[in-house]
């Protein structure tokens, strides 16, 4: 079997595995059975392995880090989400979070499966501006940073759901099984505490690279500007949290908004706006 076929199959396997994991975790919301939920973890781990295999194969085929077109970015993004999610699951010993995080990874892949034309997926050569070691560092930090923001978004949605249930004095077993508001708030914040320094690093490595490639560390290119906007939203979140005591619901909504900005920076800019980052086009 040649590498290209193997790579395509690893994509399919990842898609199926993340889909299965999402489904299992969502069923687990209403069907409390630990050994069943364990299957979700196993599916996520299998997905992460095949996702890693995809990235490694792509690297081998194209001869450069697989961070060049939208297809490769997306699979890097889902890799970041799965890694961060598994870390959180292990750390907090709570599988229920999976129902709110893994579907994000799966939807991203589903979007590729449905929308992206075949020719946009090919392993391409690096255009001159992309031939830099900074590319690898820049996108690798973005992977983990975006994964952490996805986790924060998922736990914030859980917070919002739990809050509504609590406010209605819900005695449902579903409500009982969601982690406490305090824990959710803390998780969401901690994920941002990982994502925010990394996002700062993403912006800075991008600026260093731009200085090498174009002689301008900052040119207000839409992608740059949107990454800054995302950074500003999370900066506002952190200031509101620590000096204003914006915790709980307000913080949760802000984290969801922040992730919406992450997604727009990731997709929207390439889709709706144009600029120097246009080679990332989807």
């Amino acid at each position: 079997m040649d590498l290209v076929t193997l790579e395509q199959q690893s994509f399919t396997a990842t898609f199926v595995a993340y889909g299965a994991a999402s489904l299992i975790y969502v069923i687990y919301l209403g069907y409390k059975n630990e050994s069943f939920a364990r299957l979700g973890t196993i599916a996520t781990i299998i997905g992460l392995i095949t996702n890693t295999a995809f990235l490694v194969l792509r690297w081998k085929i194209s001869g450069h880090a697989p961070f060049v077109n939208g297809y490769e970015f997306l699979l890097s993004f889902t890799w970041g989400i799965a890694v961060i999610y598994l870390y959180a699951e292990w750390r907090y010993r709570m599988r229920i979070i999976g129902a709110f995080v893994m579907p994000i990874a799966w939807f991203l892949l589903a979007w590729i499966a449905m929308k992206m034309p075949e020719q946009a997926r090919y392993a391409g050569n690096l255009m001159p501006a992309l031939q830099s070691n900074w590319l690898t560092i820049h996108v690798a930090t973005a992977m983990v940073s975006y994964g952490a923001f996805a986790l924060s978004c998922g736990t914030s949605i859980m917070y919002i759901v739990k809050k509504v249930l609590e406010d209605n004095n819900s005695k449902s077993s579903f409500n009982k099984r969601l982690p406490s508001l305090d824990v959710l708030d803390d998780m969401s914040y901690k994920a941002i505490a990982i994502g925010f320094p990394l996002l700062s690093a993403v912006i800075i490595t991008g600026a260093i690279w731009a200085e090498f490639a174009w002689g301008r560390y900052w040119s207000w290119d839409p992608k740059e500007t949107w990454s800054l906007i995302t950074w500003l939203v999370y900066a506002a979140y952190l200031h509101a949290r620590f000096t204003y005591g914006w915790r709980g619901n307000k913080a949760a909504w802000m984290s969801v908004l922040g992730f919406a900005f992450v997604l727009f920076t990731f997709f929207g800019v390439n889709y709706f706006l144009s600029g120097l980052h246009a080679y990332g086009g989807l």
Partner: peptide, 21 residues
């Protein structure tokens, strides 16, 4: 005031958005 700081961060974000559209 931190209120001013947060408002300015968000105003800056909003202004930056306008500049990309």
């Amino acid at each position: 005031s931190m209120k001013l700081g947060i408002v300015l961060l968000l105003v800056l974000a909003a202004a930056s958005i306008i500049g990309t559209i």
